[in-house]
Simulated scan of single mutants.
Amino acid sequence: MSDAPVDSLPGIGPVTGGWLKAAGIGSAGDLRAIGSVEAYRRLKFMLPRRVSLNALYALEAALRGCHWPDLPQDVKSALQQQAKIIDESFRLGAAARCAIG
């Protein structure tokens, strides 16, 4: 399963699969190794206006082998918090992302 193409996971279609491959996440094992939040961060960096919270839900659901509406509410809430942190860092700009201390 870990060598399977990332777009073979449930809920990962050809568009998202292409984005993931462009971000260096080509297999199910790659996605499993970095997790849904890091994959979302990479996609958000590449395509900030096209990647939404639904992508994060889909990535997490793909790792769990379910559809994103079936994710437990506590998981969705945790993912929302992570997405908010990532999205806010992009709104603040590069200087805020690269600031020291």
Rank of each mutant, 00 (worst) to 15 (best):
S2M: 07
S2Y: 06
D3T: 09
D3C: 02
A4T: 05
A4G: 01
P5M: 07
V6G: 09
V6L: 13
D7F: 09
L9H: 08
P10L: 10
G11I: 04
G11W: 02
G11Q: 11
G13M: 11
V15R: 14
G18H: 08
G18F: 06
L20Q: 04
L20D: 11
K21I: 06
A22L: 10
A23M: 09
G24A: 07
G26W: 03
A28R: 01
A28Y: 02
G29I: 01
G29A: 08
R32S: 14
R32E: 13
A33S: 12
A33Y: 00
A33V: 00
A33E: 13
I34P: 06
V37E: 12
E38S: 10
E38P: 01
E38Y: 02
Y40H: 14
R41L: 01
R42G: 09
L43S: 14
K44W: 01
F45Q: 09
L47D: 06
P48I: 07
P48D: 08
R49E: 13
R49S: 12
R50V: 04
V51F: 02
N54I: 13
N54S: 12
N54C: 12
Y57G: 06
Y57T: 09
L59E: 01
E60T: 05
L63N: 11
R64W: 14
G65R: 10
C66W: 07
C66S: 14
H67Q: 15
H67D: 15
W68A: 03
P69W: 05
D70A: 12
D70W: 02
D70V: 02
Q73G: 01
Q73W: 03
Q73H: 09
D74V: 09
D74C: 06
V75Y: 04
V75Q: 02
V75N: 00
K76F: 05
K76V: 09
S77K: 05
S77W: 00
L79R: 00
L79P: 00
Q80N: 03
Q80P: 00
Q82L: 00
Q82H: 07
Q82Y: 00
I85E: 15
I86D: 10
D87I: 03
D87H: 06
R91F: 12
R91H: 11
L92A: 15
G93C: 10
A94N: 04
A95I: 01
A96I: 07
A96R: 07
A96F: 09
R97P: 13
C98F: 03
C98K: 10
C98M: 11
C98Q: 15
I100T: 14
I100Y: 04
G101H: 09
